[in-house]
Design a protein around this nucleic acid. Sequence first.
DNA 1: TAGCGCCCCCTGCTGGG
DNA 2: CCCAGCAGGGGGCGCTA
Length: 149
Amino acid sequence: MLTYTRNEEGLFVCPDCGATKKNQSTMHYHMKKHEEKLNHACKVCKKEFLQKQTLDLHMRSKHPDNDTKKFKCTHDNCDFTSLTKGNCIIHYLRVHYQNEINEIMLKDGNTFSCIECENEFSSSSSFYYHCKDCIQFEDDNKYTKFKAL
DNA sequence: TAGCGCCCCCTGCTGGG
DNA sequence: CCCAGCAGGGGGCGCTA
């Protein structure tokens, strides 16, 4: 089995490809990819995934049971629900903060950039997700209050 | 060092209007 | 064709063995 080492900066170094990671768990995950030990298969449809969490998400979306959790949009009179908190945040900003976002969004072809922080994003989804850091909310913590149902 | 769980963030694809 | 939403991957953090 391969083992990783630390360099003089204290970073974890992959002996296989030389990649460096500052977090030990991240390097551990990286090493597993080299060893191809990340096969998580769905018991129902046999589909395979790299990560257990991805398998869990697949199970919740394709083979839901009574315990399946969803995140609900906290905006007044909005019934939107999503399997992931991230998607719920994107929905919340895209739909309910459209005006605020339009003020800071600069679209150039398929590239979305933020005039507040000058970051660029390759998709609208990632731009909207990013906007939670650049937009002034009426209720600062509202987007963090999405409840798992 | 190894293993696990949980989370955030980003991305690409898809389906509906 | 565009956009909202879905679903998957990468990696960070914390904890325990």
